[in-house]
Design a protein around this nucleic acid. Sequence first.
DNA 1: TTGCTTATGTTTGTTTTTGTTTGTTTTATT
DNA 2: AATAAAACAAACAAAAACAAACATAAGCAA
Lengths: 259, 259
Amino acid sequence: MISNNRQLEILSLLSEKGNVSVEEFAIKFNVSKMTIRRDLEKLQENNLLQRTHGGALMNRVLLQEMAYNDKREENAEIKQCITRKAVTFLENNKIIYLDAGTTTFELAQKLPTQDLTVITNDIRIAAHLMLSNNQVIFLGGLIGKETGSVTDVYAQEMLKEFNIDVAFLGTSSVDNEMNLCTPDINRMKMKKIAYESANKSILLVDSSKFYSKSLYKILNINDFDVVITDFDVNELTNFDLKATEFVSVKCNRKEDKEC
Amino acid sequence: MISNNRQLEILSLLSEKGNVSVEEFAIKFNVSKMTIRRDLEKLQENNLLQRTHGGALMNRVLLQEMAYNDKREENAEIKQCITRKAVTFLENNKIIYLDAGTTTFELAQKLPTQDLTVITNDIRIAAHLMLSNNQVIFLGGLIGKETGSVTDVYAQEMLKEFNIDVAFLGTSSVDNEMNLCTPDINRMKMKKIAYESANKSILLVDSSKFYSKSLYKILNINDFDVVITDFDVNELTNFDLKATEFVSVKCNRKEDKEC
DNA sequence: TTGCTTATGTTTGTTTTTGTTTGTTTTATT
DNA sequence: AATAAAACAAACAAAAACAAACATAAGCAA
C-alpha cells in the first residue's frame, strides 16, 4: 500500500471514530508502529489531526470538510445530470453569476476553462475557478461556516453593481405554490439581487427540494427564464408554467445515461 | 493531451478507487514501471492527478493540496521561523488582517483555531481559515490569477471600513533606504490602507527581500510597530530603527532549530 | 528503403520509505 | 516520590521506489 493512501485511510477512520491508536493501525496495515507514528506526524504538520500519546485525535477542521464532502455526495447523480444540462446554456464571453451551493459547485467544475467572467459568493467555487482562465470575481464579506459563502450586506451591495448575463441559482426548498424558500434572510436577499441584476436567470433544482417550505419566499418558479430539474413534468404542468422554459432531465439514478 | 489508452484507463480507475499504485498498473498493462511513471508524470502535468511515492492520488479540488505544494517552497524553513514568531504577537478576541502572500499563508496555518476575527484578501488564506472556528472576512473583488488575491477598488473600499487591531503584512521587496516596494499600484494601496486601518502593524519579511526595489514605495520599515525577519541584525543597526520593535529570528536553514 | 520521432525497456545511482535498535520520555501505579 | 510499563524518537540499515541516461523498438513520412 502506498503511504499516502495509508494516511488517507487513517484520516477517514479518524473522522468516523474521533480517535485512533498507533497500535491499532500498525496491526491493521501490517506495518511497524514507527511508520504509523511518522504518518501521524506528517498529518499533524498539515493540521489534519492532533497527536496524542498512543494515537491521535480528530481535528475539527477535518470534520467540516468531511461534512461538506458528504453533502456533495447526496443526489450526486441527479446533480450531474442537471449541471450537465446547465452548461449547454453558456456562451463565450458572458458574465455569469453562480449562487452558493453544492449544485452550482458541480456546475463550476463543468464550466469551460476560459472566456467567461464568473461572479460568485461561494468561496469553494471561487477557489476552484481561480485555477481556470476565466475571470473570477468573489463577493466580499463574512464567510459563513456551514455554507462557505458570503451573504452579508457587503456581498449584497457589491452584487448590485454588476451587469450579469446569466445567473444560475439554486434553492434549498420549493413550496406548494412553487415559491423558492430559504430560512435565512440574507440568502434570500442575495438570490433576489442576483435575479434582478441578471438578464436571464436559470434555476437548478433537484426533485428532493420540492414541497417543503421555509420562512422567506424568494421568487416563484415562474419568474425564471429556465428551470432545470429532474422533477416529474406531469406534476408541474398542473401549475401555470408558460412563462418558463422548462427543462426536465430524466435521470436514472443507477445508470446515469439519460441526461 | 492524453496520448494513449493506458493513460485514460489510469484516470478512469483512479476516479473509481481514489488511488492507484505503479506496480498494479505495470502488471495490469504488462509494461515496465518506468512507463507507468512516465504516464503519471504526464497526467500530473495536466493536473489530472497527484503523484505520490508508489502511485498517484486523485486530484482533489479542495485546497488541502495547495497547502501541500506550498510546503515545498523555497524559503520554507525561514518562513516557518518567522511565522512561528509572529503568532506570539496574537491575543484572543482580536481583529487581525492578513495580507496576501506565502508568508502570511504560513501564518494562517499557525493561527489559533478560535476567538479571532481574520480579515484577508487572499483566497487561499480565507479558504483555509474557513475551516477553523475563527470569523473570516474576505474582501471582495476580482481574483488575481497569479496571487490568488483581490486588490481592486472593491477590496480597497471594503478594507477601509474595518477597525483592525493587528495587521500582518508581507512585501515583495525592501530597497536600500528600507522602504517596502511593490510593482503594482493596487497592491501598494491595499497595504497602505491596511496599515492605516490598523492599531498595530507587523511586517514579516525574509532576508531574500532586502536591497531590491520596484516602482511603488509603500512604507518605510520604521513605520512598523514590529518587524520580524531573519535578516542580519548588524546590517540593520546601520539604519535608525529606534521606532520599531525589531525581532530577528535566527534560522539555520538545515537544522531549523534556532527559532 | 532511410531518417526521424516517439514510446518503451534497462541500467545505474539516488532518494524515499520502512523496520530495527537503542535510549529517552511519558503515563500509570504503588 | 519511586517504580515499572508503555510509548516515543533518534540513528542507522535495508528495502522499495524513483529518475537520469542510454539503448532498443515501433511507427511514419519522405
